[in-house]
């Protein structure tokens, strides 16, 4: 998969997304996903439009968006995202040293983005690659049996 690309917030695009999903039963989460896919995050302006469209308060829309780890409410992630598994099966085969190396090389902690906006580092609790850990997902592409040295070559 490709590095992330997204457009700046605009009302017309957001309105079109809202209009598409208000008809879908339980459509608020798919709508939030479409908003984030378009803009790289869920801007306040989009929450306002979602609230109007779904006939809920803005606080309720915010409450749903902020509940889920996937939604970014402040700003888009870096151009590229590395997700490292922090769960038990990967811990058992050295996920700790892999994460330490990535944090060290990029100079950021979990949830951080490098100053140049190139990389974001996100924790993930299981990619289902538990028989070939430590595992990572970089821009949607999966990697297994990593160690501190091999993960560095991917950055």
């Amino acid at each position: 998969m490709q590095p992330r690309s997204s457009q700046p917030f605009d009302t017309a695009t957001a309105q079109a997304i809202v209009a598409r999903f208000v008809r879908v039963p339980g459509g608020l989460i798919p709508a939030l996903q479409a908003i984030q896919a378009a803009f790289g995050h869920v801007p306040r302006g989009a929450l306002k439009l979602l609230a109007q469209g779904f006939n809920i308060t803005e606080a309720e829309a915010y409450g749903v968006a902020s509940f889920y780890h996937d939604f970014r409410l402040d700003r888009p992630a870096g151009r590229r995202t590395i997700k490292l598994c922090r769960a038990e099966a990967c811990q058992a085969v050295g996920a700790g040293p892999v994460a330490a190396r990535v944090k060290d090389k990029l100079g950021i902690d979990w949830g951080g983005t490098t100053a140049d906006g190139e990389w974001s580092l996100e924790p993930v609790f299981c990619l289902g690659l538990c028989a070939c850990g430590p595992s990572a997902m970089i821009d949607g592409e999966v990697h297994g049996r990593l160690d501190a040295d091999t993960v560095e070559t991917l950055l």
Partner: peptide, 26 residues
């Protein structure tokens, strides 16, 4: 096919139903 949004607790059946309805996965 519906896609989750990164919440572990949505694997609990009633939280999953809430999430499918477009709510917080409580």
């Amino acid at each position: 096919i519906r896609i989750g949004a990164g919440s572990y607790v949505c694997g609990e059946e009633t939280a999953l139903l809430e999430s499918l309805e477009g709510k917080r996965g409580q």
